[in-house]
Simulated scan of single mutants.
Amino acid sequence: MKKSALIVWGGWDGHQPEQVAEIFKGILEEENFQVEVSNSLESYGDKEKLRSLDLIVPHWTMGEIERKFVLNISEAVAAGVGLAGCHGGMCDSFRNNVDWQFMTGGNWVAHPGNDGVEYMVNIKHSSSPLLEGISDFKVVSEQYYLHYDPAVEVLATTRFPVFHGPHAANKAVDMPVVWTKRWGNGNVFYSSLGHQANIVSMPEVSQIMRRGFLWAAEGKKRAEELDAASCYGNVRTYTGMGDSQ
């Protein structure tokens, strides 16, 4: 039986959201997913449909979202639906919505030097085998500086500073590039790589996204084996208390 995925793209055109969505669609179809592609946030309005999915792939940079849509996604992911995305399409979405940032694991704050910075992506040894066999590689793109959740499991990093700026007065830091986290019974996957379609198409980057999609979509099976109802109820109660826009 095919797994099902929903890709929702939009927001700032500079990230080429439609082109990236098509690349993601191709990857998922190669993995035998049934894929729906939408360019409307209204796609998050049907909570029962979201809960029937195996994977949600957001690719929407900046903009505003109705709070009820974020709550619908949060409940679906907590019940086992995977959430996976990249770059500003997932962790620079809806800057005024802290519930979204809490669920996804972080948010973009800067890219010193803007596009065209050459930097290394360093694969980290961790408890996760997700990136096994992928070697460190060089990227010429935006280098994302993120504020991130200390609960995430970091699978790849990049070293700052590479480009001059006020941040360079601090000691060198290793910033996450790829991470995973749990949200209830759901798997959440993020990669900061993917400024435009040419970066997403890089062999290393597309392989990272492929593995992330497959891993995130495994949460549904685990949820069936656990008592999802109690976790789902707890998350719903918590997010209902927030003051998100």
Rank of each mutant, 00 (worst) to 15 (best):
H87A: 07
G88P: 05
G89A: 03
G89Y: 00
G89V: 02
G89Q: 01
M90F: 08
C91W: 09
D92N: 15
D92L: 09
D92C: 13
D92R: 07
F94A: 10
R95A: 13
R95Q: 09
N96V: 04
N96E: 15
N97T: 11
D99Y: 00
Q101P: 02
Q101K: 14
F102P: 00
F102H: 13
M103I: 03
M103Q: 01
M103L: 04
T104H: 06
G105F: 00
G105S: 04
G106K: 01
G106C: 02
G106I: 01
G106F: 03
N107G: 07
W108H: 03
W108Y: 13
W108K: 00
V109D: 08
V109Q: 06
A110I: 03
A110T: 01
P112G: 02
P112Q: 02
N114H: 13
D115F: 12
G116S: 08
V117K: 04
V117E: 01
V117I: 05
E118H: 06
E118D: 12
Y119K: 06
V121R: 00
V121Y: 03
N122V: 14
I123M: 06
S126R: 07
S127W: 06
S127P: 03
S128C: 13
S128A: 08
S128M: 10
S128N: 11
P129V: 01
P129F: 03
P129M: 03
L131V: 07
L131Y: 05
E132R: 15
E132P: 02
G133M: 10
I134W: 10
I134L: 12
S135K: 15
D136C: 09
F137I: 03
K138L: 14
K138N: 12
K138C: 12
V139D: 04
V139Y: 00
V139I: 15
V140L: 04
V140A: 07
V140W: 00
V140K: 14
S141P: 04
S141H: 03
S141I: 00
S141C: 02
E142R: 02
E142T: 00
Y145E: 05
L146G: 00
H147D: 09
H147A: 14
H147C: 08
Y148K: 04
P150G: 10
P150V: 08
P150H: 08
A151M: 06
A151N: 14
V152I: 15
V152W: 02
E153K: 08
V154L: 06
V154M: 03
L155P: 01
L155T: 06
A156F: 01
A156I: 02
T158Q: 07
R159M: 09
F160Q: 09
F160R: 06
P161L: 08
P161E: 07
P161Q: 04
V162M: 07
F163I: 09
F163S: 15
H164W: 10
G165V: 07
H167G: 12
H167F: 11
H167A: 15
A168K: 12
A168G: 00
A169T: 14
N170R: 10
K171W: 09
K171R: 11
A172K: 13
D174L: 12
D174P: 04
P176N: 05
